[in-house]
């Protein structure tokens, strides 16, 4: 059946409408607001040019200190979460690919189901597990004669607790993407590699990985973006503590806008965060693209 351009355009319009309403306009409006002294309650109090950006980027103001602290924390979390969320997800997917058919469905469901749990429930569970005074993990440690650890109010343990919660919560999503990619790998390549006497590692490195590389790069990019948006876990498990060491960029932006009533400054922070994320994502694309060319 041939669909006319008019009909196809009309079918596309609902998407375009919502894309404009809920993406383009807020995006442009956010940039506009960031150049103004704008409060949530009072609205626009005048154009201030780059003043909001200058105060964030110039040492000596509380906005600079809180933004830079949160940026450092967020980058740290992106760094420590990338390997477990991508590599462990790939390992899980490989494991699932190599178990019998019926069990494969069962384990795929088990590993993915945690992704369906809300961040509030996940955080409540992990807060209880890692509570310093009488928490489950410390109880286990004490059973084995080990000292208790103040998981949630000392570092690096607070990050470990948040990382554990995040990995448990979201690893299933990446795993499903890898499982689907692995399903698409041409079986004949494995057969050819086996005939050539390739061992398991050689089969993975020379057949599997090149075949799923596109998905791998995609998973890395969406994982970095997701980790950049860290919010629920740090808000509900550590409240940004101890001493602001798990305060993420999103928490700072939320606080600046709604607690300090400073929509202009918060929008400037959000724009800067977006620029940083685009920059990092661009680098990832470039690296992935260059390797494709070389390959």
């Amino acid at each position: 059946m041939k669909i006319s351009k008019t009909v196809s355009t009309l079918m596309f319009l609902p998407f375009l409408l919502f894309f404009v309403l809920f993406w383009i306009i807020p995006f442009v409006y956010g940039i506009y607001v960031s150049f103004h002294n704008w409060t949530v309650s009072g609205g626009n109090n005048g154009f201030v040019g780059l003043d909001n950006y200058i105060r964030i980027l110039t040492p000596g103001s509380m906005y600079h200190d809180s933004f830079m602290n949160a940026l450092g924390n967020t980058l740290y979390f992106v760094g420590i979460s990338l390997v477990p969320l991508v590599v462990f997800a790939l390992l899980l997917a490989l494991l699932i690919e190599n178990i019998p058919g019926k069990l494969k469905v069962v384990f795929r469901t088990i590993f993915f189901i945690s992704y369906a749990v809300s961040v509030t429930a996940v955080s409540a569970i992990f807060k209880w597990l890692f509570t310093g005074n009488g928490g489950y993990i410390n109880n286990v440690l004490q059973t084995f004669g080990l000292d208790s650890i103040r998981w949630l109010n000392t570092q690096p343990y607070a990050w470990i607790a948040i990382l554990a919660a995040t990995v448990w919560w979201t690893i299933g999503y990446n795993m499903i993407l890898f499982v689907n990619a692995l399903d698409e790998v041409d079986e004949s390549l494995y057969e050819a590699a086996a005939l050539d006497g390739a061992n398991a590692w050689q089969r993975f490195w020379n057949v599997t990985f090149p075949s799923i590389k596109g998905v791998f790069v995609f998973v890395v990019i969406i994982t970095v973006i997701a980790s950049f948006n860290l919010y629920g876990q740090t808000l509900l498990i550590t409240e940004g503590g101890p001493a602001r060491s798990t305060m993420s960029l999103t928490m700072i932006i939320q606080n600046t806008i709604f607690s300090q009533n400073n929509l202009g400054m918060g929008s400037a922070m959000a724009v800067l965060m977006g620029i940083i994320m685009v920059f990092i994502t661009g680098i990832q694309y470039m690296i992935g693209f260059r390797k494709d060319e070389n390959g």
Binding site: T131, G132, N133, G134, G135, N138, N139, Q142, S148, R150, L152, N153, T154, T238, E239, G241
Partner: peptide, 23 residues
């Protein structure tokens, strides 16, 4: 030492002779 967020309440609700091993 080392009581965290809302620790004054959680410590009051502990059972020192129970399984949790908390203060």
């Amino acid at each position: 030492e080392g009581l965290g967020l809302d620790g004054e309440f959680h410590a009051f609700m502990q059972d020192s002779e129970g399984d949790s091993g908390g203060n």
